[in-house]
Computed example of a mutant assay.
Amino acid sequence: MAFEFAPYHDVGAGKRVMGEAQYEALVAGYSPDGIFGHPGDPNPLAIVGGQLVLRAGVSGVARGYWWSSGDTDTPITVGSNAGGTGVRRDHIVIRIDRDANPRTVAPVARQGGTNGLLPAPAQALGSTGQWELSLGSVALPAGGTIGAATLTRLGWYVGPDGQLLCTSSTRPPPSPGRVIYETNTGRQLLANGEQWRLVTDAEASAAVTLVAANWTAPLFNQLYRRNGSVDLTLTPQRVSGPLNPGTSSTLGTIPTGFRPVGDKEITGHVVSTGALVVCRIVGSTGVITLTPWRDRIESARYVNLQAASWPVRH
């Protein structure tokens, strides 16, 4: 069985039973687009014997069109990058071609340039033009063919109740009001038309990765994340030589998934002496630097940092 789509052709009558433009206009507004299944399923694309294919048994929906690769691999033509001077990235999509008569639905490669940028999928609305659903990308090195290409997954999935399932790197476009669930992070996100906003996420805990040569934290070192907010409790102990006033020391790094949206400053004091300390957190990297003021921090002294919380970067 070759690649096929439905439901427009009445096999028994041998004719179309509904205009395709009318059907798309009716169904696309409430039908999710995506691959049927789960992000944990095998990559729908593969390179087999120097040929890019859509694997057998992969199906999905696009603008109300059901599509399926059938029970055999569907080959996808990808031109070589023989004359290229840089990496070329092609976007592999399911393309609805409304200008064909009758319309066609098929997996194709949208060829990119040699600047390494991935071309955007076509998203024409109305009764003409093309509309494309992302499946993945192939990166062809300069002078290379598909046999030397690297595959990257981009497709998202439609679950059993019509929910959109993806990973943090395969999100669909942020159409207003669209809700997605990331299976690799446990987060549910809501789109506002331009960005994704966190609705809820999986509770998790972690610790600041300390610079062991200078700091330890035998009493308190905990990051706790719940519903987009992170709480930090940290009481570091100086284990190397004294740290003089005005001298900064890298305390450690907050792991990905717990870092603040922007840079943050928190204060604290040295236990017993009361000397003021200031910590700066760089949101993009999670690096924490600590600087004492007025008095130095002697070796083996604890620093009592204020409890802090922040919205998490996602």
Results as ranks from 00 to 15, higher is better:
269 H>W: 06
51 Q>C: 03
89 R>Y: 02
281 I>F: 11
127 S>D: 08
143 G>F: 13
154 L>F: 02
131 W>E: 00
82 A>D: 09
258 F>C: 06
286 G>P: 04
11 V>W: 14
287 V>E: 15
124 A>E: 07
200 T>V: 06
153 R>W: 00
258 F>I: 11
87 V>Q: 04
212 A>E: 11
215 W>G: 04
120 A>V: 09
228 G>A: 11
308 A>S: 10
210 L>R: 09
178 R>G: 01
223 L>G: 02
156 W>Q: 01
137 S>I: 12
258 F>G: 02
63 R>N: 08
2 A>C: 09
304 N>H: 12
35 I>K: 02
242 P>T: 15
68 S>T: 09
103 R>V: 11
1 M>C: 04
15 K>S: 08
19 G>C: 07
296 R>C: 08
227 N>L: 11
261 V>I: 08
268 G>T: 02
57 G>I: 12
87 V>F: 05
171 R>M: 02
305 L>M: 12
77 T>G: 11
9 H>R: 11
33 D>W: 00
211 V>L: 12
175 S>C: 05
16 R>D: 03
214 N>V: 10
304 N>K: 13
260 P>M: 04
221 N>I: 13
196 W>L: 00
266 I>S: 04
73 D>F: 03
153 R>D: 03
96 I>A: 08
221 N>E: 09
247 T>I: 14
183 T>S: 09
17 V>A: 10
144 G>V: 09
191 A>Y: 01
259 R>F: 04
22 Q>N: 14
95 R>M: 06
2 A>S: 13
259 R>E: 10
158 V>N: 09
17 V>R: 12
181 Y>N: 06
230 V>D: 08
305 L>V: 07
310 W>M: 07
167 T>R: 08
224 Y>W: 13
305 L>N: 05
140 L>P: 00
66 W>T: 05
295 D>P: 09
278 V>K: 15
288 I>F: 06
203 E>D: 10
190 L>D: 07
153 R>N: 02
108 V>G: 06
126 G>W: 07
41 D>C: 02
244 N>K: 14
196 W>F: 00
196 W>T: 00
182 E>H: 00
85 T>P: 01
168 S>F: 04
244 N>A: 15
